[in-house]
């Protein structure tokens, strides 16, 4: 029996009855694409250490830079949003998603100029990551001194 809808119970009714996407499928796709991107990163690490004879740290840095480049390139080519529609978190969470979140607004706001458009809006979505990451890293450093 459907309840009589009123402002008080409306939101709960909508949450319950509005269509949601299939969670199992969403998880599977996110897992698959995220896993693939990480596997690519693993390959880049190996490439750095075995072919270029880099240290583990340096190889890690190389693969991060390459992945950021790829994320930026795919965003510029207009392909990353297609991937995102398919993969959801699988394209948002890896570092390629971080690059996408910087390139997308930078491209978008080019029409408002390079200083206040590209320059200012570039960190519209990634900015909070840097703010909170930096603050917490200082806390981490202090924790290392104290404990």
């Amino acid at each position: 029996m459907d309840p009589t809808l009123r402002p008080e119970n409306y939101d709960a009714y909508i949450q319950k009855n509005m269509p949601k996407s299939n969670l199992i499928w969403d998880l599977a796709r996110a897992f698959f694409v995220g896993g693939l991107i990480c596997t690519l990163g693993q390959g880049l690490n190996a490439l750095g250490m075995e072919v270029f004879k880099l240290s583990e740290d340096q190889a890690g840095m190389l693969s991060i830079v390459v992945l950021i480049f790829l994320g930026a390139l795919l965003t510029g080519l207009g392909v990353y949003d297609v991937l995102g529609k398919f993969a959801g978190a699988g394209s948002i969470v890896p570092i390629t998603g971080f690059a996408n979140s910087i390139v997308a607004p930078a491209m978008e706001f080019k029409r408002e100029g390079y200083v206040l458009g590209v320059g200012a809006k570039m960190f519209a979505i990634a900015g909070p990551v840097l703010v909170y990451g930096t603050i917490l890293s200082v806390a981490a450093g202090i924790a290392a001194l104290l404990f």
């Binding site: 998880l27 996110a30 990480c38 959801g88 978190a89 699988g90």
Partner: peptide, 25 residues
């Protein structure tokens, strides 16, 4: 490991209305 870490994020996206920016933070 990578797939699992991303899957956790998918749960957040599907089950909450957290925006991508908040999830990345």
């Amino acid at each position: 490991v990578g797939g699992a870490i991303c899957a956790v994020g998918q749960v957040l996206i599907s089950k909450t209305n957290l925006t991508p920016a908040r999830i990345l933070v």
